[in-house]
Amino acid sequence: MTITVLFFASCRDLMGVSDRRMTLAPGATVADLISTLASEQARFADLAPSLMVSVNQVYVNRNVQLRVGDEVAFIPPVSGG
């Protein structure tokens, strides 16, 4: 299944892109997605514990299962204001 993944701020700098399409096995969770990204970019594994994750603009836990077409965002600790 194909999803869209968004990266912001320090996370975008690390991954080198602001968004990408990714194909995951059916039933994959947020945690599975994090593992896949960490296998491509080792420093993502270091960053991951500090990141919030949203699916379709709602903050979620890492055991949430992803669905076709989901928009997943990795959100470093926010610093607006």
Partner: peptide, 11 residues
């Protein structure tokens, strides 16, 4: 609350 929950970042 904005500073806690709204996804905005400052460089």
């Amino acid at each position: 609350r904005l500073k806690q929950t709204v996804p905005i970042w400052k460089k």
